[in-house]
Design a protein around this nucleic acid. Structure first.
Lengths: 211, 211
DNA sequence: TAGATTGTTAATCGATTAACAATC
DNA sequence: TAGATTGTTAATCGATTAACAATC
């Protein structure tokens, strides 16, 4: 039984993945933890420690092969296979998420859109027709869905999350401004935009002191 | 000179603010760190430590007055005054941000939309007309702008950030999938949606091990 | 081989939790 | 006053950084 890897480490992995992708694009074949650390403004020690949570991907005297490390981190993050997603709540944010091409490139495929507003029924977003929530059980019987993005008002978020769990969906990308701590059996990743904006406000207010 | 408050603490402040707002709505007048800790799934000790970075808001034997604490945290986060924002890049995400009523309620007012695509010129989003980027300098001369939301492709993000700094804007809410570390003199808050999605992917993949 | 750089252990630093005296 | 609960100091825990032996 391997020991859990801390969320502090997980948080940094996508960033490594992005920098390695950039290096690949730039045609760089190998890189040392020291050179990477300068680019990323972190310590070389941290890079080596982080990576060694998952395995020894480097070689003494050489460094890391960029392509190999990129692929390995991709696998760690589950990007070697594609994931089907549905979006619950087709407002502005839901549509923005649906239209975001980048997710597609990373292997996250949006295959269904759901809403409770009858006016939205049949509406087309990026070639996908909006369905009503009561069509969801049937849809899930016919399609394998890995992740549900919750882009709906906070009032409905928790109830909807519970419904999803009952229907067998356990990974929730939560844009609603509530915590879903009380819903058992789910993995949640929160995107709390207003929290983020408040932190910016705080840091802006206090940046003169910092400098 | 007060010592800097760690970002770990800042990160939690909006969450306290939200829970206190909920308590207010529920008509709760006072709360102890212990009761709040149960609701929020954190330790009472952490709540008291966090708050005492900013001052003694409670009272021995009584706890915290909800309204008072709510207001004080609001002030800490800069929510006691309103902030003018502009959105740079009026794609799906930019429009979603513009239409998000919640920010408005928190005092973040979007007063301008800018894009480089001539086809978008004059387009109306929530009563605001899209302007071209070359109209920005003039706009900034006439309007006080505190925050710029960068909802544009990553290729243009860094250059645009530098332009904004030259025009006097220093707080950037960055949705582009790049780090703006190399731009001097700005306060940045990143919203990296694909990083978030990758973390969800990782945690979903490994949740069986965790349990 | 000599030089470079990893993987990993040990040291340090910072953040969280526990404990309790102060006090409402 | 007695009970409750804060503010704050001290103890613990975990994460980051430094150091270096292993090795390519």
């Amino acid at each position: 039984m391997e020991k859990d890897i801390s969320q502090a480490v997980i948080r940094r992995m996508p960033r490594y993945y992005r920098y390695l992708g950039d290096l690949l694009d730039a045609g760089v074949e190998r890189i040392s933890s020291s050179d990477l650390s300068k680019k990323m403004h972190v310590t070389a020690s941290q890079i080596r420690q982080d990576l060694n949570n998952f395995g020894g991907f480097g070689q003494q005297g050489y460094g890391y092969n960029v392509q190999y490390l990129y692929d390995e981190i991709g696998k760690i993050l589950g990007l070697n296979e594609s994931h089907n997603m549905i979006v619950i709540g087709v407002g502005n944010l839901g549509q923005a998420v649906t239209n975001y091409v980048k997710f597609d490139k990373l292997g996250f495929k949006i295959i269904g859109l759901f809403d409770t507003n009858p006016e939205k029924k049949g509406m087309d977003v990026r070639g996908i027709k909006v369905q009503m929530m009561d069509e969801l059980p049937d849809f899930l019987r016919k399609n394998k869905v890995d992740i549900a993005a919750l882009t709906l008002p906070r009032a409905n978020a928790e109830t909807t999350a519970r419904e999803l769990v009952e229907l067998g969906i356990t990974s929730i990308w939560n844009f609603a401004h509530v915590d879903l701590d009380d819903v058992d059996g789910i993995v949640v990743e929160n995107v709390h935009l207003s929290d983020s904006l408040m932190r910016l406000s705080y840091n802006a207010l206090n940046s003169n002191k910092i400098k």
